[in-house]
Nucleic acid binder design. Structure first.
Length: 320
DNA sequence: AAACAGTGCAACCGCTCTGAC
DNA sequence: TGTCAGAGCGGTTGCACTGTT
């Protein structure tokens, strides 16, 4: 179609804005309003394209922009919204007064994403990915039993399973190698029986609310419950998780053993299969946590992440 | 003190969406 | 109904800053 560019690139300035340019833009918008962005630079006496002016204004100069470090509440809100909305940064920004989509996007990519990965949580699906955790520390514990291993199989990527097997193979005194081999065999069997990968893939839950969730995900709740149930007695997987993720297992242990509600979001959605009636209120009313150290922050961050539930009655249209 | 690597963020790019004609 | 321009959006880049060796 050959659409014309938004502006004539020749002679127009690019790169960082100077204070003088900022002043010109602010003064013009305060007097005239933004109006037409394409004609704005000329009227304001700026050697910039309209698009650059619009971005500068919306991302930096707007008077209602809140600058500075994200609070913990904001961070939690971002994570929770992202788990529902995905990379709809503008929709997320609409729920965070004073924050821009660009700012949130940057903060996600530079801080939150890394932290989630470090905790073994897939930043795309927000599901725990045990294959992202340190499997060697996980498997070197004598407390690992067949029940837990069989429970893990829906979460562990077959490649990670093979890796774990090889790790255990190097510890010949460890009797769990037999169990792991059984687990791998079971994996192969599942793969043959079902014409799909028997693991939780990153995008497995992308279509929650819009289509039927595979049975695989329904088994997830029971599996996770089984895994973390042992935790209440101080045994089981909890002690095998890396220290930075204690918050996860603590929370799971408590929640699952009491009411089996962890991961309810996945199942409640799959059973309801009705994204139109979901409400976001409880999802946004996150508890205020005053942890000040990074460790405390990570722990509560970790636990609350996995507690997130997509409430019934959420109306996605409100966010789009 | 200098070199290098890692990190954070503002700004840009290019595609998509939307509404006017 | 199709075309087009404006605006919005998500992904990416480039650079300044900071920490480490």
């Amino acid at each position: 179609m050959g659409r014309s560019p938004c502006c004539d690139k020749n002679g127009l300035k690019k790169g960082p804005w100077t204070p003088e340019e900022d002043t010109k833009l602010i003064q013009h918008i305060q007097m005239q309003g933004p109006g037409n962005w394409r004609t704005l630079p000329k009227n304001a006496g700026l050697q910039r394209c309209g698009k650059s002016c619009r971005l500068r204004w919306t991302n930096y100069l707007r008077p209602d922009i809140k600058r500075g470090r994200f609070s913990f509440e904001e961070e939690e809100t971002i994570i929770q919204l992202h788990s529902v909305l995905g990379n709809k940064w503008s929709a997320i920004a609409a729920r965070l007064p004073g924050r821009t989509d660009n700012e949130i996007k940057n903060y996600w990519n530079t801080h939150i994403r890394k932290r989630l990965l470090g905790m073994g949580i897939d930043p795309v699906t927000h599901a725990p990915r045990l294959d992202l955790l340190d499997l060697s520390s996980l498997l070197n514990s004598p407390q690992l039993n067949l029940s837990n291993l069989l429970s893990l199989q829906t979460l562990i990527n077959p490649d990670a399973l093979r890796l774990a097997l090889s790790l255990l193979s190097s510890h010949t005194e460890n009797p769990d190698i037999f169990l792991l081999q059984k687990l791998q065999e079971n994996h192969l069997l599942n793969s043959q029986l079902q014409n799909q990968a028997p693991v939780v893939q990153p995008n497995q839950f992308d279509n929650i609310g819009t289509q039927q969730i595979p049975n695989q995900s329904q088994s997830l709740q029971g599996d996770m419950g089984q895994i973390f149930q042992n935790n209440s007695s101080g045994q089981g997987l909890n002690s095998n998780l890396p220290s930075f993720c204690n918050g996860i297992s603590d929370q799971f242990g408590a929640d699952v053993s009491s009411d089996n509600s962890s991961f309810q979001s996945l199942n409640s959605n799959s059973s309801n299969n009705n994204s139109q009636n979901l409400s976001f209120e409880s999802g946004l009313s996150t508890p205020l946590i005053n942890g000040s150290t990074e460790d405390e922050r990570d722990q509560s961050f970790c636990s609350n992440l996995l507690r997130f539930e997509i409430p019934e009655g959420l109306d996605f249209d409100n966010f789009m």
